[in-house]
Nucleic acid binder design. Structure first.
Length: 219
DNA sequence: ATCCCGAGGG
DNA sequence: CCCTCTGGAT
């Protein structure tokens, strides 16, 4: 891409980030227990393709029954499944919770590792969850958590090209586009934007604060 | 019907 | 690259 075009694109990207900041000031993780890295990891793991509300509803009972990684490591999977039954994919997630706890105990000395590669060895923890936990629990901003919202919005705003057809390629493109200081806020603000305004199949373009910066406004 | 702060396996 | 896993809210 010619340098002038690249510069224009970056300026538009920065403008978008600033608007996001104005519209969603001090946005933070909608999941509870961000003060405890282990609990946050489990909460984010549980939240895959379910609502934050659903997760926040079941985690109090989960932590009451299993207050520590050690307690969860010793848990009966069926009992865990019973507690989280009301959220989606609960069968696999219950098994992953317990496996996570066991691995944290056996391999990581009882603590969530502060390392992008190691943390993804936990079952059910992929790159998106890893980014969220590193960012939220440890203040380590190593990448951008690309979920379905970030993916959709990046493409709709044409901040990434059509070849960025996977979450990883989209993340790489956004990392090149945005200076480091913008990475953290994207994780929280774009999700809110995606849920409230740029909704997947019926975006509210009429009331969107980015419509003048969006090549796809109205489509 | 559609969506929800995805990951793992074939 | 595709598929599957899941229940609740709107």
């Amino acid at each position: 891409m010619p340098r002038e075009l690249m510069k224009e694109k970056r300026e538009r990207a920065i403008a978008i980030a600033q608007r996001m900041d104005e519209h969603f000031p001090a946005a933070e993780c909608a999941l509870h227990y961000w003060g405890d890295p282990f609990k946050l990891t489990i909460a984010v793991l549980l939240s895959a393709q379910t609502t934050d509300r659903g997760v926040n509803k079941v985690t109090p009972a989960l932590w009451e029954r299993y207050p520590t990684p050690q307690a969860l490591a010793n848990a009966d999977v069926n009992e865990v499944e019973e507690i989280i039954r009301t959220i989606g994919f609960h069968h696999a997630k219950a098994a992953n919770c317990v496996k996570c706890a066991r691995m944290v105990i056996s391999d990581f000395g009882g603590e969530i590792p502060q390392d992008m590669t190691l943390i993804q060895k936990l079952p059910g923890v992929g790159r998106k969850t890893a980014n969220v936990v590193l960012n939220e629990a440890f203040g380590i901003v190593e990448g951008i958590a690309v979920d379905t919202h970030v993916f959709r919005i990046a493409h709709k705003l044409k901040l990434v090209g059509p070849s960025a057809d996977t979450p990883q390629k989209t993340e790489d493109a956004l990392l090149k586009l945005y200076p480091r200081q913008y990475w953290g806020p994207i994780n929280h603000q774009w999700v809110l934007f995606g849920r409230q305004i740029c909704i997947a199949r019926r975006p509210k373009c009429a009331e969107c604060f980015l419509s003048d910066l969006c090549p796809n406004s109205g489509k």
